[in-house]
Amino acid sequence: MARKRVAILISGRGSNMTALIEAAADPDFPAEIALVLSNRADAGGLARAAEAGIATAVIDHKGFSSRAEFDAAMDKRLRAENIDLVCLAGFMRLLTDGFVEGWRDRMINIHPSLLPLFPGLHTHERALEAGMRLAGCTVHFVRAQMDSGPIIGQAAVPIALDDTPDTLSKRVLTAEHQLYPMALALVASGLATVENERLKLHADVPADLGGMLVGPAFTG
């Protein structure tokens, strides 16, 4: 089976991008990182991608009069590169409904909370304020509503009594770097699909992969 061509969209340093690049360096990984695209020319992740020999592109959102025009320019570049899957990795732009639908079930995102808890920003502060004993991260298929869509996988991180947003963030980020490549591998290999807006896993996939919780799901 040919490896899926993946584009990663970033706006900053792209630490999750780096985790995906490192995973895809294995020739047995079912996806190759074909493009890293940023809306900011100063995004630190662009240099990291170039060092890895990956094509990069900048499409500055400030050069467009509307979100729709910006998204159309991104879509054109992605299709020109024959991209199969899109991974969002710290991409700090809200995407239009048209763009999201154009990449339906082919675009995934990672969020630093156990969705549906704490969508949006300041997730670690909110988890601590709520007195949560667990935090974590979620990889999901992207839908038009922010931080929604069928969940591919989640990783739980215990919260210590003396945690601060910074200390918790660091531990959750470590979990993100493990979870995102696993989730991308499931999607790129066709072992994780969507049916009736729920994750569907191939029957051969174990429910627990390296301590990562995969679901909600049904197999078939």
Rank of each mutant, 00 (worst) to 15 (best):
E195F: 07
N196M: 04
L37H: 10
P158D: 10
K170G: 06
A73R: 02
A49Q: 00
P27H: 03
F29K: 01
R106M: 05
D97M: 12
E81I: 03
G90E: 10
D204R: 15
S38K: 04
S15V: 01
F141V: 04
F141K: 04
G102N: 03
A160K: 01
T123Q: 09
A43V: 15
L199R: 08
D162A: 08
L199S: 12
I59R: 02
K170F: 06
G210F: 08
P30D: 12
I33M: 12
A73Y: 09
S38Q: 11
T174D: 03
A19W: 02
T167S: 14
D42T: 10
R13K: 12
L114D: 00
L88W: 01
H111T: 01
H122G: 08
C87A: 15
L114M: 09
R106V: 04
I8M: 02
P165T: 02
L191E: 15
F29T: 06
F70V: 01
G90I: 13
H122W: 08
P206Y: 07
M146R: 00
R126L: 06
M74G: 01
R3G: 14
S148P: 06
E81K: 05
K62G: 10
E197N: 09
L191G: 12
A50H: 12
A50F: 03
A7R: 06
E81L: 03
A34Q: 13
W103E: 05
I54A: 00
L168C: 07
S15D: 07
V58M: 10
S148M: 10
I10E: 03
I54H: 00
M146K: 01
L85Q: 00
A2R: 15
R3Y: 13
L168A: 04
G102W: 09
T56H: 05
P119N: 05
M17L: 10
A188E: 04
A130D: 15
L191M: 10
T56K: 11
D97T: 09
D105S: 14
K62R: 14
A2Y: 10
A47C: 11
L85N: 02
L35E: 04
M107C: 11
G12Y: 11
P116Y: 03
T219A: 09
A207D: 15
E81D: 13
F141G: 04
L173E: 15
M182D: 08
S148G: 13
L94G: 09
A160I: 03
L168W: 03
A80G: 14
M146P: 00
P116T: 13
H202N: 15
S169H: 10
C137D: 02
R40M: 09
S38G: 05
G120M: 04
L78T: 02
M1D: 06
D84G: 01
G211R: 05
L114I: 09
P116N: 07
E69P: 01
A73K: 11
